[in-house]
Simulated assay, not measured.
Amino acid sequence: MLTIGCHLSSAKGYTAMAKEAEKIHANTFQFFTRNPRGARAKEINPEDVKIFHKKAKEQGIAQILAHAPYTLNACSADESVREFAVNTMRDDLQRMEYTPGNCYNFHPGSHVKQGPETGIAYIAQMLNELLKKDQSTTVLLETMAGKGSEVGRNFEELREILDRVELQEKMGVCLDTCHVYDAGYDIVTDLDGVLTEFDKVIGLNRLRAVHLNDSMFGLSSHKDRHARIGEGKIGLEAIVRVINHPALSHLPFYLETPNDLEGYAREIALLREAYKE
């Protein structure tokens, strides 16, 4: 069965997200842990979480994916920004234990003219400070498009971060189809080659989730602008190859396309029809 969902608003709580997922025939979903452009986090209601767990079991909701706010930059040149990243992720990982056994995804950050090596060192330092042996959450590094001074613009940079993390069993990677294509990895004409390279550099065993997005600008553009499925430079045919690839088809897929709930429902239906059991 295809495990697919989209990004849902967490403003009304976990149960509301489960209901929205049911409405669009999704069996997973992604959500922001807090305001994506700020710092505020909604207080968790234990009763809401209790109802969510029951509903998730009834609906067959698989691994859900929390996304850190965009304001989290673990490798900023500004010490106060790095401190904010540490405090935010620490709080997020504590909150994640209300829904144990899931994943938490974050953008590695931007080194802001310090150089990628310095950025990588800061990110690993944060992870080594925060990851705990008894946590149930797997933290995912997201593949990035390479705009500006982003860290994670290639597989080698992600591998360098992972190599420096002490509790490696708590780490994984989320592959974003728009980001990797924009970064220069040709998943349209050479998906096998890209996945072979990923396996060689990082290891496919570390891949835990896929952000399924078309790309507005395309190969090597380094733009990071998502398009609806089939309306961008990647195209529907290539996206269908992604969800059916034997190295990927068992993973959860999360749509981050520019859509409302009705649009997500259409994309989910389209991809379910194209998925080969």
Rank of each mutant, 00 (worst) to 15 (best):
T143A: 14
L140C: 10
L175D: 06
D91S: 13
E160S: 08
E117K: 12
T99H: 10
N154K: 09
S110R: 15
L65V: 11
G184S: 05
A145C: 05
C103P: 01
C75P: 08
G109C: 14
L175K: 07
P69M: 09
G152Q: 08
D182T: 08
S149Y: 14
C174L: 14
Q125N: 14
L140S: 07
L131D: 12
T137Y: 01
H107Y: 11
H111W: 08
A121C: 10
M89K: 00
D190A: 15
P100A: 10
V112R: 01
F155M: 02
L127K: 02
T88D: 14
D91H: 06
E169S: 11
E150S: 06
A74G: 15
T71G: 03
Y98S: 09
Y104H: 04
T138R: 02
T177P: 00
C178A: 07
D163H: 03
G172N: 01
H111L: 14
S110G: 13
I187Q: 05
C103Y: 13
N87L: 01
E166L: 09
V139K: 05
D163S: 12
L93C: 04
L162K: 07
V86I: 15
M126P: 00
K133L: 02
F106W: 10
V173G: 00
Q135K: 01
V180N: 02
Q94E: 15
G115S: 06
E160M: 11
T137L: 11
D163R: 07
D182H: 07
F106K: 00
A68V: 06
G109W: 04
A77Q: 11
L167G: 12
M144Y: 01
L162E: 07
N128Y: 02
T189P: 01
R159Q: 15
E166D: 13
